[in-house]
Each structure stands twice: as C-alpha cells, then as structure tokens.
Amino acid sequence: MSAAVGEDLLAADAGGGRDQLRARQRRATAVSWVFLAAVVFAVVVLLVLLVAVAYRGVPSLSWSLLSSKASRNAESAGLQTALFGTLWVISLTAIIALPVGIGAAIYLEEYAPRNWWTRALQTNIANLAGVPSVVYGLLGLGIFANFFGFGRSIITGALTMALLILPVIIIASQEAIRAVPLSLRQGAYALGATPWQVSRHHVLPVAMPGILTGTILALSRAIGETAPLLVAGAAAYLTYNPDSLTDGFTALPIQIYNWTDRPQQEFKDLAAAGIIILLVVLIGMNAGAIYLRHRFSKKTRW
C-alpha cells in the first residue's frame, strides 16, 4: 500500500506537476467535504426523525394521555397501564440485574484466577452481548414463562430483561473497577484487609459512579426494548394496572407498537405522542448518566 503511494508521488514529481499537486490538493479538499456530509447526514436524519414525530405527536399530548388507560377508542386511549407496567418491570429488572452484575464484575476483576475458565467466562459475556434481543425473548418464554410456570407476567418480563442487560452491566462495571488505581488495593492489603474488605470498602466506592452510569444506560436501553417483552410475556392490549409480580402487564414501547400497528391515523398520532414520552424518559435517564459521569470525574483525581 505505502509502496503504491510512493510511486504516485514519484510520478507526480517526475511530471514536474505543480498542477498535479494542486489537483491532488483540490481533490483532498473536495473529498473532505464528502466525509463531512456523511456525518451531517446522520445529524439531519436525527432532526428529521424528531421533527416528524413531534409534528404528529405534539397535538395529541395531554395529561389525559398519561392518566387514561388503554381503549379501543383513540380519543380516550392513554398510557397509564403501560407506564405502570414499564415502571414495575424496569424497577424489578434493576433490582435483579444490578447486584448480580456488580457481583460478576467484582468476581472477574478482583477474585477470578487468570486461567482458561475466566477467559471462557469473559468470551461468553462478550458473546451474550451480541445475542439478538428476540432470542432472549424466546429464553424467557421457554424457561421463565413455561418451564418455571410464571406465565405471561411481570416477573417473567423482568427476569428476561435482567438477563438481557446483564452483559452490558458486567462489562461497564468491569471497566469502572479496572480504572481504580492499584495502589488503593495494595494499601488496603498492606493493612491486613481481606479481599472482600478491599473490594467492598475501597474498590467499589471509587468505581460506583462508573458502575451506576453504565447501569443507567443499560436500563434506558431496556426501557426501549420491545421484542423480548412481546415474545416473553407482555400483553399488547391491557386495561388494568398490574399490582403484583404475577400479573400480566404491558409496557410503553409495546403500547406504542400496538398503536402503530392499527390502521387508523388517530392511533398513529397517539403512537407519536407515546414516542415523545418515551424519548423524554430516555433523555432524562441519559442526562442523569452524563451528569453522574461529569460530576465524579471532576471530583476524584489520582
């Protein structure tokens, strides 16, 4: 490759080409605009998407959209059931996935010996992160809903979601733990602390902002996930709020899907309003994660 460049340059020289050099420079400038255009395309698409959703959805936004339950009638249909379902499922997902994810990360970074078993675990986690979410849905359907008999319930949905985001939480937590300076651990060990005391009192507190940032981002991904819940257990149409773990549920993105899927334009507008609410929730969570990262990255300097 570099040989080819050399020949070109020699050829340019041999041609004595001021013009050729200028042409090459012109081409370089022109193509740099093409590169810029590619990035600008992404920005424009984002803007178009937001404007298109806002254009259809904003007129349908109202308090009654949040407070009404599902209905076959577009005027009285609302998101209340879906909001409750999402709240239930995501809280439970966090309760399950956070401790397990942090535990796994501590094990891999602080406890695990460096051998084939640990490498296998690590490869396995990387591969799990690449499994399509709909396959997790099948796992939830086959194992939690049918084998354990939880049926199409909140607990099935939350367990499925927890397994889905676990690899993301583990990888993010590992990175945060790895960033904790070694001297901190050595200091604690020198004073006679046990491995768990070192992890619990010295490594975790320092790594916590990073872990929480990763977890919030993982949970915000889970809030938008539709396919696994649809496959594993959510109901597409539900008119009562869940009040126990074994109740059926629907969720925000599923309600949006349900409305998008109907042929009437009024429901498509409602779906756009639902998307606005979903995006507001996600932007709020992401802003929280960025704030956490920013605040703690300023505070601790090593």
Binding site: G103, L121, L138, I143, P195
Partner: peptide
C-alpha cells in the same frame, strides 16, 4: 465469611454462563 462471599461472587459470574446454557438448551430442546 470471606469464602462464602467468594462463592456468592463466583455464582454471580456463573449466571452469565447459565444464561448461555439456558438459551442453547431451550432452543435446542
């Protein structure tokens, strides 16, 4: 308690392996 905690943390790590086993198991079955 150190050992117990070690075991618990190991189990947390093993959950990811169980997930893979669960996915392949249920799909293949």
């Amino acid at each position: 308690s150190e050992r117990l905690i070690g075991v618990v943390l190991f189990l947390c790590g093993a959950v990811s392996l169980l997930t893979t086993v669960g996915i392949i198991g249920v799909l293949v079955f």
